[in-house]
């Protein structure tokens, strides 16, 4: 759930980058920044999925309200 929120935020930032690149006088830099943001989002999703799988192994649920220890 939190991950989907992060993806939404990154997407909205991307829309801003591309829109300003279109209507401002910046050339293609904005589109390139959006590309970098997409790549960062991919890396972040991979790492986060690994963390989520580890958490599931430890707590057998992924409800973030009930996860309160880093180590057992």
């Amino acid at each position: 759930m939190v991950l989907m929120g992060i993806e939404l935020i990154l997407n909205s930032a991307n829309i801003n980058f591309v829109a300003f690149a279109r209507y401002g006088n910046f050339g293609n830099s904005g589109q390139l920044t959006a590309l970098f943001v997409i790549i960062l989002a991919a890396a972040e999703a991979a790492i986060a999925m690994a963390i989520v799988l580890n958490i599931y192994k430890m707590f057998t649920n992924i409800n973030i309200d009930e996860i309160d220890t880093l180590k057992d």
Binding site: I15, V18, Q31, A34, L35, I38
Partner: peptide, 10 residues
Amino acid sequence: LFVLLSADFI
């Protein structure tokens, strides 16, 4: 929206 902003590659 990206297509509309002519950012086809993105």
